[in-house]
């Protein structure tokens, strides 16, 4: 396979990879961006959610070859700077939206995608329904839902979303 070239968190990256390489493997093993997690590896749990061309996808269920030329945004690319969290990250911290933290990167990437698609005023029912593809085994979801509702509002209040350059 020819070398894979794509944009990850605003930077062009290239790598020679086995055709079998999944996007999540490429991110974690080639780029050492280990914020994107592998939970179930069977596309159920959503720990591996990243944005590809501005849309949430499960990076364990897409080949890096399919993402050639695409703009990929991972949890590492979300914060505006090294000292400032993205409003959705901040909302998870404020509302204790995590316990062990394993599902959190996927939850946050799904939450930001949710806001991008649906808007800033999200009720609990909508949030819970939209979280269908993200599993958390610790929190019971309650604080995750609270975090997303708060993060969505905070994003409206000026904490813009940094998307991969399009």
């Amino acid at each position: 396979m020819p070398a894979a070239t794509l944009t990850v968190n605003g930077k062009a990256v290239t790598a020679d990879v086995d055709p079998r390489t999944l996007l999540v493997q490429f991110l974690r093993e080639n780029l050492r961006l280990t914020g994107t997690h592998v939970g179930c590896d069977t596309s159920q749990c959503g720990a591996c959610v990243v944005h590809v061309n501005g849309r949430a996808v499960k990076s364990c269920s897409i080949l890096v070859a399919q993402a050639v030329g695409a703009n990929v945004l991972t949890i590492e690319g979300l914060a505006p700077s090294a000292t400032q969290l993205h409003p959705m990250q901040e909302a998870f911290r404020e509302n204790h939206g995590l316990q062990c933290g394993y599902c959190t990167p996927g939850m946050i990437m799904t939450a930001v995608d949710m806001v991008n698609r649906i808007g800033h005023d999200l009720d609990d029912k909508t949030i819970r329904h939209e979280l269908e593809g993200n599993l958390c085994r610790c929190t019971g979801y309650h604080n995750i839902v609270k975090s997303i509702a708060a993060g969505a509002k905070a994003m409206a209040a000026g904490g813009g979303v940094r998307r991969a350059a399009e």
Binding site: G46, V49, R55, A56, V57, K58, T110, E130, E132
Partner: peptide, 9 residues
């Protein structure tokens, strides 16, 4: 169908 991330693909 599936969940939001699956529906994107």
């Amino acid at each position: 169908i599936g969940d939001p991330a699956v529906r994107h693909m």
